[in-house]
Amino acid sequence: MGFKLLSKLLVYLTASIMAIASPLAFSVDSSGEYPTVSEIPVGEVRLYQIADGVWSHIATQSFDGAVYPSNGLIVRDGDELLLIDTAWGAKNTAALLAEIEKQIGLPVTRAVSTHFHDDRVGGVDVLRAAGVATYASPSTRRLAEVEGNEIPTHSLEGLSSSGDAVRFGPVELFYPGAAHSTDNLIVYVPSASVLYGGCAIYELSRTSAGNVADADLAEWPTSIERIQQHYPEAQFVIPGHGLPGGLDLLKHTTNVVKAHTNRSVVE
């Protein structure tokens, strides 16, 4: 069995187990497998329904001669939608809004960016022009300005110390501490036991640490421990890039980060 097929099978099995364990909360999309990078042309966006009122959005972007996937989250909030992270750029984010209108038909009224990198804030200006209120932590807003990236308009308070959590509509926002970046936030959907790890969490097929220019490698494993301790009931975990899975993604990420750190020390 090929690795790609095995990865998709694991996603399907995880979703099936969740649907059985929580039949009222989960209505997993039966329309197909989780979209992969090879299936999404740059400039297009796919939506994948995880649970009743919960979707991931998947886009792709060219970077350094390669094409990478990027995940975000959409959560229903009454007759409105909360968006977590842009679709990595203005063109993708405009396509995301169009796809949401086509498939869901509810307005996106608020959006949260989970850290300051372009795959999370690139497209904020498109959201703002569409009347979406954009939010991020003060740290993310400051770092985005320093980096020359787009800056969300509103500040999220109460997320300055490791372990801080605040309720934001249908989700809980959690600051686990520094990891992929010093400002990275985690998003949890309690009604569906869905954990969105953003770039602080890796997919299972990833074996290298990737972009760690703004990471705190020493603190990252401790931050992941905080996530595990705060959300032990999480059933569906979405990484910032690639295929979702279960809580095993947290341990896998820790292993990859520690291996990278150990290699760096040896070198």
Rank of each mutant, 00 (worst) to 15 (best):
S7D: 10
A111R: 01
P170D: 03
A66H: 13
S193G: 11
D64C: 15
S113R: 01
A87G: 07
A59S: 09
V257E: 02
E147A: 13
V11W: 14
D119K: 00
S137A: 07
D85A: 00
P152E: 04
P232D: 14
W55M: 10
S155P: 06
I186F: 09
L247D: 03
A200H: 02
Q61K: 08
H180C: 00
D79M: 04
N92D: 08
P69C: 03
E33W: 09
A192H: 04
S223Q: 03
E33N: 04
P107W: 06
I224A: 11
E150D: 14
A234K: 14
A94K: 06
T182V: 05
R76P: 10
D118K: 07
G32K: 14
G65C: 04
F63D: 07
T207G: 08
Q228G: 10
T114K: 01
T140A: 10
D85Y: 00
L82A: 09
A192V: 08
A25Y: 05
A95Y: 10
V171C: 15
I20W: 13
A144W: 08
R206T: 05
H241T: 00
P232L: 14
G148Q: 12
L249Q: 15
P138H: 04
I224D: 02
V146W: 14
G240T: 02
S191R: 07
S208E: 06
H57G: 11
N211K: 09
G198V: 01
S155M: 10
D29F: 11
S161L: 05
A21Q: 11
N262S: 12
E99M: 10
E33A: 09
I151M: 02
A133W: 11
G177K: 00
V237S: 08
P41A: 08
A192C: 05
S22I: 15
A192M: 09
N149H: 04
S38H: 06
V121G: 02
V121M: 04
F174L: 14
E150A: 05
H230I: 15
K251I: 04
S205H: 01
L82R: 08
T254H: 15
A215E: 11
V67G: 07
G32E: 11
D79P: 03
E99N: 03
K4C: 11
T253H: 02
R110N: 15
P190Y: 04
V112I: 05
V108P: 14
A59C: 05
H260E: 07
P152Y: 13
S205A: 06
Q61G: 11
I104R: 08
V237R: 01
F236C: 08
P107D: 05
W55D: 01
T14K: 13
F26D: 15
A133M: 11
N184Y: 00
Y231L: 03
I84E: 00
G242H: 06
P221A: 08
Y175P: 00
P170N: 15
P190S: 09
L173H: 01
L243I: 15
H117K: 00
T153H: 02
T207C: 05
K91G: 10
